[in-house]
Each structure stands twice: as C-alpha cells, then as structure tokens.
C-alpha cells in the first residue's frame, strides 16, 4: 500500500519525537524481562544451574576457549560467565543466554529451557539434560564420555 507523507508532517513529527525522552519500542516478546524474571523465579533450580553451567563449560572447552576469550567472542561479561560455570544458583541474563546460543550455534529456546529461564516443555530435553549432568565432570580435558554426553545434548537441542 502506498501512503502519502508530506515534508511538513515528517518534520513536525521529528520535532515531537525530539521533545520526549521516550523511545518507540512496542511488543510483548515471549522473552520480555518481566516474564523471564517470573519464569526464572519459578523454574530456576540448582539442577538447571548445574546443567547449564556444565554445558557452557564443556562447549567452551570444545571450542578450546578460555573464559576470557569466550566472554570476549560472545560479547558478555566475564564475571557473569564465571558465575554461570561456577555457581549453580546463578540466574543468567536472557541476553547472555542469547549470546551464548549464537556463539555455540544452538537454538535459543532450548538453551533458555536449559538455563531455567523458560518453562521446560520437552521431556526428552529434560531427560537428556539430567543424563548430561550425571555423565559430565568438570575436569581439564574433554574426555570421550564427556564429548559423547555433550554431543547427545546438543543433538536434542538442535532437533527442536
């Protein structure tokens, strides 16, 4: 559809926009801050913290990155990354999960579930996450068992 805009109208509206400190963003995203905070309060548990922390650590090691390098590459705060890996009670920021999903090339919705920021709807993912937590050990090198556990979880995440 074509719409006629005059210069005068556009100029007047630009002036109006300049008069307010406000921005223009609209939209209730499924991951808007209020909902993610509420979901986090309900869903976040030590179990999801352990699974998500171990997942991030193993994916980082698989990519042969230091914590600092991963933080830099993913554009996230190094302090938060340390907390994710070390503190099972830590609730990650939605943006951080988004950045990590991009960095690790896994679907964001699945990673949000894994991080306890959205409600788990996929029983297979939940089961695989629990098996992953049980099989993975945070030692220096990625051993075959860890690699297999990591790849099994990534496979379920990627099917979604």
């Amino acid at each position: 559809m074509k719409i006629e805009f005059t210069k005068e109208w556009c100029l007047r509206m630009a002036q109006l926009e300049a008069e307010t400190p406000s921005n223009f963003e609209v939209g209730a995203s499924p991951l808007a801050p209020e909902e993610t905070m509420e979901a986090a309060a309900v869903e976040q548990s030590a179990a999801s913290g352990i699974v998500f922390g171990r997942f991030v650590r193993l994916m980082r090691r698989k990519q042969r990155l230091t914590v600092e390098k991963l933080a830099e590459d993913a554009g996230i705060d190094v302090v938060e990354l340390v907390e994710i890996e070390e503190d099972s009670r830590h609730t990650p920021e939605p943006r951080t999960v988004y950045q990590l999903a991009t960095q690790f090339k896994v679907p964001m919705q699945g990673l949000m579930q894994l991080a306890g920021l959205s409600k788990a709807k996929d029983a297979r993912l939940v089961n695989e996450a629990i098996r992953f937590a049980a099989r993975s050990e945070p030692v220096a090198d990625l051993n075959e068992a860890e690699r297999a556990a990591l790849e099994a979880l990534v496979s379920v995440l990627s099917e979604r």
């Binding site: 926009e17 307010t20 406000s22 223009f24």
Partner: peptide, 11 residues
C-alpha cells in the same frame, strides 16, 4: 499496542 516501558511516554 503493548508498549515497552521506555516508550510509554511517547504513546
């Protein structure tokens, strides 16, 4: 529309 908080004043 549902406005994000930083946009309420505009709408």
């Amino acid at each position: 529309l549902h406005s994000l908080p930083q946009s309420n004043d505009w709408y």
